[in-house]
Design a protein around this nucleic acid. Structure first.
Length: 564
DNA sequence: TTAGGGATAGGC
DNA sequence: GCCTATCCCTAA
């Protein structure tokens, strides 16, 4: 028997809701009406499964994306969600509650996570997506239109609220997790009640047409917008041809369409023969006429209005179909003041959704021929394809960061001369190390710096793996001077006195131990025993502030030796 | 981090 | 130059 568990069965409310939920309870046994059904089957899904916990959080983000009224907040949420997708959520299945919530958030983020037009808030606003809706090209509009259609199709399915955990992110590529996880069966059957509702029919189709309207208009944007604003921009001929072509391909149904008519009216020879006009005759009306058409149809042209209406439609869909995330019920996630009323509605238990979902699961009988589906690039992944990262299309965020870092490094290398060569040359010009018997001079300090201590520990650096392997013996060390650049052993130029600002020349002056220090050491040895120099030093940090553990040890040796 | 050998500064 | 206290280096 396959388990089908539904989050819509989460209910803290009434007996009747619980009863409705019981129909979608995990097992075919009838649940007790008085018990609150779990949103998962405890035998098959660990409630503390990290994926499940992260999904709860992810859903709150998605929910807030829809409920918030602030562009900045949406853009912020997009960033958070991108992080979560990368770090916590693996591949997801293209059905069920997570898929729908993700698609909703993605669509809203893409359309409403940015301002529609350029305005005064441009420079200081780091938190929003840089490009504006008015920048969208035909391809981006097509993405939005397709996504809205897919979302609609997915939401009216009977498995719209099914909890389907994504696959785990695997530490070891190639490990087969498929057989471990029990994935709920998808139910492609359409919920006719939802499908026939006004939100999923008329409103959806109208929104789709409106998006198509702006898709076409994008061919002559942003010049048109500029022209309407100040009358200075010129729209290139080829853009107008593309615009004409777009109208033809988007609205070729033949029947009258309000949006197509408005677009058509922008052409100079619009009218009865407008749609059949020859390509060479393509030209737009005068700016004055365009402005008139624009002002007469401001509601349709206005991208901010489009954003608002799209948001409203998606909110209706979410309210109808998707349950409020558990954490959102508990008050997690912030909601903006202007949206509170709206949010309160969304937070009301979606009775419609629950009953709809309940009936859908109760009726689910088509189990035999279902196939499991998982795609490599899911809706979740598409968060990364969008807009401001266009040039990195197909790259993961990490890859794109690496690419950017490399570019930055290369740019820096062009501007700055690598100081290594010069430093090595200078080092070679410095005096050879003094003989051991000679008196210690300041120059010897530099000589000692050049000397390699046998016990020295080296950190290994290389700009790239290749460079590392190319290095002699594959063991390039940052402190290792290449053989060819090493100074000749017999050349002993005069010592150079190097003095750093504020630094005393010569070796550190000997400092006799004070009685206070001696006392601290002796007390320390009494307390901890000889050899516990670190403990002694940390026990008398004030008295022994100028001494290291070796000095303390030496002093104790001297003290004991002199006492003999 | 510690022990121990050795180098060295500085007092006599 | 010798002696001692302190500092330095290395091995474990």
């Amino acid at each position: 028997m396959k388990f089908v568990y539904s989050a819509t069965s989460v209910s803290m409310k009434t007996k009747s809701t619980a009863a409705a939920s019981a129909a979608v309870a995990p097992t075919e046994d009838e649940s007790d009406d008085n018990t609150v059904p779990l949103p998962y089957d405890p035998e098959t899904l660990d409630p503390l499964d990290p994926r499940r916990v992260s999904l709860d959080i992810f859903e709150v983000y998605c929910h807030e994306m829809v409920t918030t009224g602030e562009v900045r907040r949406r853009a912020f949420l997009i960033k958070k969600m991108r992080y979560m997708i990368h770090r916590l959520i693996g591949n997801q299945y293209e059905y069920g509650r997570l898929f729908n919530y993700t698609t909703v958030a993605n669509l809203v983020g893409r359309m409403c996570g940015r301002h529609a037009y350029y305005g005064e808030e441009d420079e200081d606003d780091e938190c929003q997506l840089l490009s504006r809706l008015v920048d969208f090209d035909l391809a981006k509009w097509k993405t939005v239109i397709d996504q809205l259609g897919r979302l609609r199709d997915s939401l009216i399915r009977k498995d719209a609220t099914l909890i389907v955990l994504p696959t785990e992110i695997e530490d070891t590529p190639g490990a087969d997790k498929e057989e471990v996880d029990e994935i709920p069966e998808e139910d492609e059957e359409i919920d006719t009640e939802k499908e026939s509702s006004e939100a999923f029919t008329t409103s959806f189709l109208q929104m789709k047409d409106w998006l198509k309207f702006h898709a076409c208009l994008s061919c002559i944007q942003p010049q048109l917008q500029n022209a309407l604003n100040d009358g200075t921009d010129v729209i290139p001929k080829e853009n107008i041809a593309q615009f004409h072509q777009a109208i033809h391909s988007h609205f070729d149904g033949g029947e009258e369409n309000e949006y197509a008519d408005i677009l058509d009216s922008l052409f100079s020879n619009s009218g009865t023969a407008g749609k059949k006009r020859a390509k060479k005759d393509l030209s737009l009306k005068s700016l004055r006429q365009l402005k008139t058409i624009h002002s007469e149809n401001k509601r349709v042209f206005d991208l901010e209005n489009l954003q608002l209406q799209l948001l409203k439609l998606v909110r209706r869909w979410v309210k109808m179909v998707l349950p409020v995330p558990n954490l959102a019920r508990l008050g997690y996630g912030s909601v903006d003041a202007p949206e509170k009323a709206n949010d309160a509605k969304l937070n009301d238990a979606p009775e419609d959704a629950q009953s709809l979902s309940a009936s859908s699961h109760g009726a689910s009988a088509k189990k035999s021929a279902r196939k499991r589906r998982k795609t490599d690039r899911t809706e979740v992944d598409k968060f990364f394809d969008d807009d401001d990262d266009d040039e990195d299309d197909g790259m993961s965020e990490a890859q794109s960061k690496v690419k950017k870092l490399k570019q930055t490094r290369q740019a820096l290398s062009r501007k700055v001369k690598d100081p290594l060569e010069e430093s090595v040359a200078r080092a070679a010009a410095l005096p050879a190390r003094q003989e051991k018997a000679s008196p210690k001079k300041a120059g010897e300090v530099m000589g000692k710096l050049l000397e390699k201590k046998a016990s020295a520990v080296h950190l290994e650096f290389a700009d790239s793996e290749e460079e590392l392997s190319e290095a002699e013996g594959g063991d390039l060390k940052i402190s290792q001077v290449p053989e060819r650049l090493k100074r000749a052993e017999d050349s002993k130029p005069a010592p150079i006195n190097i003095q750093l600002p504020g630094q005393q020349s010569g070796p550190a002056k000997r400092k006799r131990f004070t009685e206070e220090e001696d006392q601290a050491i002796l007390t320390g040895v009494e307390r901890f025993g000889a050899g516990k120099w670190t403990e002694i030093k940390s026990t008398f940090p004030t008295e022994l502030r100028d001494r290291n553990t070796v000095q303390i040890k030496d002093r104790y040796r001297t003290l004991t030796k002199s006492a003999e």
